[in-house]
Amino acid sequence: MMESLLNPQTFMVFKVVVVFISVLTLVALATWAERRGAAFIQDRVGPNRVAFFGKIRIFGLGQPLADGLKLFFKEDLFPLHVDRVLYVIAPIISFIPATMTFAAIPFGKPFVKDGVQYYLSILPPDTNIGILYIFALAGMGVYGIIVGGWASNNKWSMLGAMRASAQVISYELAMTLAVVGVVLSAGSLRLDKIIEAQSGMWNVVPQFLGAIVFFVSMFAETNRLPFDFAEGESEIIGYHTEYMSMKFSMFFLAEYANMVTASGLFVVLYLGGWHFPYLDKTVAGSIIAFVIKLLVVLWSFIWIRWTLPRFRYDQLMRLGWKIMLPLSLINLVIVALFYAYGG
């Protein structure tokens, strides 16, 4: 058997392993960046004490590792009043979709070798549902919060769960309508076609309104400040009040994995995916361009979290239904008119 090391099967396995590991590594880095970024913004030092072998402290980069170990070895108790089955299932429901959604995102330029086409996304783009796959799975993530809040049998947790369900419904609508504009301009649901359509100009320029709506809804969908009502640390502590050790950390990981995926999706839909002048000539360059854009958007998550205060609940609803939804509709109408009469 003299086969080339690069064939579709091995490439697939390679992609799955590398993407899974890099997303989870990015999650760990994001937790570190969040703390250091918070400290930077608030003029503190932040966690910088964790050292490898007691000597090497690279700006406290060992912190996520230490935190992970701590959470892993912590005693796992069941509070007496919880619903045991749902209590265990909830973090799993939250975690699985969060790690699955990234599979549809093309993170580099497709290339041809020995007459075989290789795509740099785990899900083959031929399935034709690219973006719907992400929305379908991302919609599942909120059940983790709802079930967790309910199973905890605690009024604050339940408040968090109810807020999460109302919030997700409100913002998913505006978000999807904003994305319809992008799909309309690309003429396809396939994410690689959407990136291809942006080779001249990134979507963020012609569909500025849609980009704003998507960007804002992204924060609501991932339950990040200024929309972190499900958690609301300073008022209700939130859906994971009763959670500890590894179950808590699964919620935590899911939140950050959702952030990574949302950033990736924003880059693909509005910032031209792996396109970048001069850098996207090679495959490696295109991957680097994508990762850099993703990191910039990911940083904006942290930046905004430590800059803006939390909204009030009625303000959140008013913003979602009375501003975001009309804005995305206006964007959709403009794009549709342009492609019907102008393009």
Binding site: A136, G139, Y143, S165, I169, E172
Partner: peptide, 14 residues
């Protein structure tokens, strides 16, 4: 998934 599992059940649970 988007319509039934994603939206309608969330409303039910709410």
């Amino acid at each position: 998934l988007v319509v039934y599992a994603g939206a309608i059940i969330v409303l039910f649970l709410f």
